[in-house]
Amino acid sequence: MDFYLSNISQVPKEDVPIKGTKGAKIQWLITKNEGAHYAVRKFSLEKMGVIPMHVHKYQETVIITKGKCKVCVADKEFELKEGDYIFIDSQVKHAIIAEDELEFFCVIDYVDDMSIKTLNEDCP
């Protein structure tokens, strides 16, 4: 495929498939189905929505486009707001907690194992 054109409003919102997630939806905008070697996803979280501590083999970049959140990565905690972004390497534990309505884009690479392991840990 030479190109792919769409609109975010046309992409269905699905529950985030990470055990323990609360108030979070995901939209898969660009994937290998369009011929890409990476995926672009949009996440929407309700105020106090949570994506719990987890790890995976793929790298990701999170770009905040609306709201504020707490991001726990490795053993550190950061406050991110609209315009901030963070790169998280493979196998680095992380979690996101929305402080208000939150929207962000997340770009990931495709690896041999796309599974996600939820950790029984809270943010530090």
Rank of each mutant, 00 (worst) to 15 (best):
N120W: 01
E82T: 14
V55C: 09
P17G: 08
F105L: 11
L45G: 00
K42S: 09
K25T: 07
I30K: 04
K22I: 14
D89L: 07
F78Q: 08
M1A: 15
S9E: 15
K42Y: 05
F78Y: 15
I86K: 05
E14M: 12
Q59G: 14
Q91D: 14
K42F: 03
A98F: 07
Q10F: 11
Q10C: 08
T21C: 05
H94N: 01
N120K: 07
I63K: 06
S115A: 11
E77P: 06
N120R: 01
G35Y: 01
F105H: 05
Y85E: 04
N33C: 04
A39G: 13
F104Q: 00
Y110K: 01
D2G: 12
A24R: 02
I88D: 00
S6T: 15
Q59F: 07
E82D: 07
C72N: 13
I8F: 12
C69F: 00
A36L: 05
E121R: 03
I63P: 04
P52E: 10
D15N: 13
Q59K: 15
A24V: 04
K68V: 05
Y4G: 10
V50P: 02
L80H: 03
F104H: 01
S9C: 13
V73P: 02
C106N: 13
Y58F: 15
I30P: 05
E101N: 14
S115C: 04
C72A: 15
D109F: 09
K42D: 03
V71D: 02
K117F: 07
F43L: 11
G35A: 07
Q91E: 15
T61E: 14
Q91K: 12
Y58G: 13
F87H: 13
V62R: 04
K66M: 09
I26Q: 01
I96M: 09
L29R: 09
S44N: 09
K76F: 08
